[in-house]
Write a protein that binds this DNA or RNA. Sequence first.
DNA 1: GACAAGCAGATTGTCGACAATCTAACAAGA
DNA 2: TCTTGTTAGATTGTCGACAATCTGCTTGTC
Lengths: 230, 230
Amino acid sequence: MAKVDFSPIADTTRRAEIVALLRRAILTGQLAPGQKLNELRISEQMRVSRAPLREAMRELVQEGILTSIPYAGTFVIEVTAKDIDDAYSFNKVMDELAIERAWPLRDQRFFDELDRRHEAVKQATRALDTTRQIETALQLHGLIYEWADNSVLLETWQRLTSRLQMYFALHQHARNEPVPAEDVHETYVRLLKGKDMRAAQRHAREHIDLDFEELLAYARGLEQRPSRGA
Amino acid sequence: MAKVDFSPIADTTRRAEIVALLRRAILTGQLAPGQKLNELRISEQMRVSRAPLREAMRELVQEGILTSIPYAGTFVIEVTAKDIDDAYSFNKVMDELAIERAWPLRDQRFFDELDRRHEAVKQATRALDTTRQIETALQLHGLIYEWADNSVLLETWQRLTSRLQMYFALHQHARNEPVPAEDVHETYVRLLKGKDMRAAQRHAREHIDLDFEELLAYARGLEQRPSRGA
DNA sequence: GACAAGCAGATTGTCGACAATCTAACAAGA
DNA sequence: TCTTGTTAGATTGTCGACAATCTGCTTGTC
């Protein structure tokens, strides 16, 4: 009998597809923070009834990227500097933990996967696809969580990822700059392959710092002159 | 003009009430792990249509205490020893972090609230209300998270709490023992009021150990002879 | 007796319509 | 002019019915 690893079949419910579509729209910034999601309009655009759409929205509310006010509407979450700061500071600690847990479990498969994801980032960078660049960078970063062998830790990371992706997308969207050409993940990957765990943790912390500082500055700027309007 | 702090008005949707009902049923063990939730039956019992019930279920799926398989059903999550171990080990690190962050922010209101929640645990203990005892103990424990001034940390704790409460309720339910008479939180509260942060962190870690070890042993026992049945 | 095909029955997923609620514009009165 | 009451429109919340899918049993064939 042939030994084939069949991956789970794709979700066939409309709900799942709607969730994916909405999430993508939010995380890429097509739906701006604070924006209201009109159920009727969206359901008509998607050619779907409101039932699966509403269920999908409930999921995204729990996922933390939508917020719902009864009888008023469902909105994309607002992004404050404090939110970003909280996520950033929390992420630093989590990273240290993940590296610590994943460290003794690194094996050939880990290194291969690390290279694979690193390659994906570089490819997105070369293609000047900023959205995909953010996505792949987070996936690269998420490997230590997948390897840490702790379901709660992984799940927490995945929840956080949604918001991080949204924040970075916002940032990119705002300054509308070309992506950095140099490879900022080179050192990170090298250290994860090395023998000095502390060094890897330290780098992860500092590396994150760099990205976030800019992001924070941007968010603080936003709060000075609050956007929003009719 | 009178200065009154009006609290937000209660959620008035059926969905919100259903979520509360279902969550309570799961966390108290009235709905056993692995059990299937029949939508038609539940909606009839609650005198509600399936729409708000399904939306409520979606929320609880995202909350991590239900799991859904398309066209098959929605089930209460199974509890494995590894799940408990993961939650426990994750919780230890989070606790240290929360204490560290909350420590410099402790004030009179913190101490008052600490006493208030401690009192609630003692009262539930005296009343031999095990469910309420678990609930209040977790609320006591959660204060450091509320005070840590980090929304992501707090949110993560709240998600974790659901599952912790479920685990402990299962345990209690299984051994069906009277609640411990002595006050196991005395030291914890005292240390949180003191000046030695490290000591508080150490105690939190060790205190949690105690509770969890028993729980883990119980869960491992479960996995030997897998329950399950018609 | 073993096995595949096909057929109920039950359950989940989706739909369209109705009810409840909110918002904003407008009118009436102090 | 400001406040309050009213009303129309739009939007969300909920309902009951239908469609799609799964499960287990029965039936027929070898």
